[in-house]
Design a protein around this nucleic acid. Structure first.
Lengths: 158, 158
DNA sequence: TTGACGGGTTCCGAAAGGGAACTTATCTGT
DNA sequence: ACAGATAAGTTCCCTTTCGGAACCCGTCAA
C-alpha cells in the first residue's frame, strides 16, 4: 500500500483518506461548513501557505467535494462551495469533534457549536442503527474480515 | 495555525487532527480494530516503512490511544492495544467508512464489514440526537460561531 | 554456528511542506 | 496619469518529512 495510491485500495478507510487524508484538507472543509468560501479567507483563517491552499482546493474540486464557482466577471473571481459529496462528509466532522472534545481537552472554549438547524438548539450526536434506531456504542460494533479468523479477543480491551 | 502545533488550537477538529491527522495514523488504528497488535503485522498489512511505523506507534502511545504491552520476557516483545480513548474513536472510523463507500466507490468488495457485536448481523450506522433519538442528517445540523455573523446561506448549497 | 523471528534503528535520496516575494487584472482615490 | 488596494494565484528556495533498503540485537531451534 502506497500513500499516493490509496484510492485504488479495497478498504474504504484507505479510499476515504485518499481524498481527505492530506494535511490541512479536513480543516479546509471545516471552514467550508462554517461558511468560508474565498481563497484569501481560507488563507487567513488557516495560516496555510497560499501554494498549499491552491493545491488542496484544486484537489478537493477534482475529487468532487468542492465546486469552484465564478462570482464576478472583471476580474474573474471564484469561490469554493461544498458539493453534495462534500456535505455528506459532515458526520465524519461531527464524530471527530465529539471525540476530540473528550479525548484532547482544551482550556479554551470551542469557537463554534453544533446546533439543530430547525430549533437552533445544541445537539449531542451519537451513532444509531438505521433500522432499529438502537444506540450503537463502540462496544456494540465490531469490524470483521469475512473468511479470516476472528481476533482472539476484543481489540483493545487493555 | 501551524500543523505541528495543532494541539493548542481551540478548534476540536484541529486538536483531533493533531492526534490522528498524520499520514498512516488512521490506517494503523483501523488495523487495531481488526485485531492487529504486533509490529511486523502492522508493517506487512500496511506496507509502511518500519521507521515510520515505529514513529507512529510511539506517538499513538504517547497520545494515549494505544498501550504498549509486553507479552513475552526473553527476548522482550510487545504488542499495541487500543486504550479506552482509542476505542472511542470508532465512530469516526465508522462514519468515514460509510462516507467513503458512497463517495469513493471501488470495484472491489470491502475486505471487512461492520456487524453488531450482539447479533453478528450487519448494521447501517447513522447519526441521531442523543436526547430525542431523532435522526440527524447533514441538513439537520449546522456549525455556528457564537458572536459572528451567520453564513449568508447554507454552506455549500451549490 | 547458521538461520529464523520479532522489533526495531540508521542512512540517504526523493517528495512534500513552508515562508516570502512576485504576478495579473481591475477598481478607487487624488 | 499614477499610487494603492483587492483577490487569486504562481514562483523560488530552503527545510522537514517520507520512503526504500540495509543493518542491529537478543533469543531460540536445527
Amino acid at each position: 500500500m502506497r500513500w499516493t495510491e490509496l484510492e485504488n485500495e479495497a478498504c474504504p478507510v484507505a479510499r476515504g483518506l485518499s481524498v481527505i487524508g492530506e494535511r490541512w484538507t479536513l480543516l479546509i472543509l471545516r471552514d467550508c461548513f462554517l461558511g468560508v468560501r474565498r481563497f484569501d479567507d481560507f488563507q487567513s483563517s488557516l495560516g496555510i501557505t497560499r501554494h498549499l491552499l491552491a493545491d488542496r482546493l484544486k484537489t478537493l474540486e477534482e475529487k468532487g467535494l468542492l465546486s469552484r464557482e465564478q462570482y464576478q466577471d472583471r476580474p474573474p473571481r471564484f469561490e469554493y462551495c461544498l458539493t453534495r459529496t462534500g456535505r455528506d462528509l459532515f458526520p465524519v466532522l461531527v464524530t471527530l469533534i465529539t471525540w476530540a472534545d473528550a479525548a484532547v481537552p482544551s482550556p479554551q472554549e470551542a469557537p463554534y457549536r453544533l446546533v439543530s438547524r430547525a430549533t437552533g438548539k445544541p445537539v449531542a450526536p451519537v451513532l444509531c442503527d438505521a433500522e432499529t434506531g438502537a444506540r450503537l456504542t463502540p462496544r456494540d460494533l465490531r469490524m470483521i474480515r469475512p473468511g479470516l479468523a476472528e481476533p482472539e479477543a476484543d481489540p483493545g480491551r487493555g
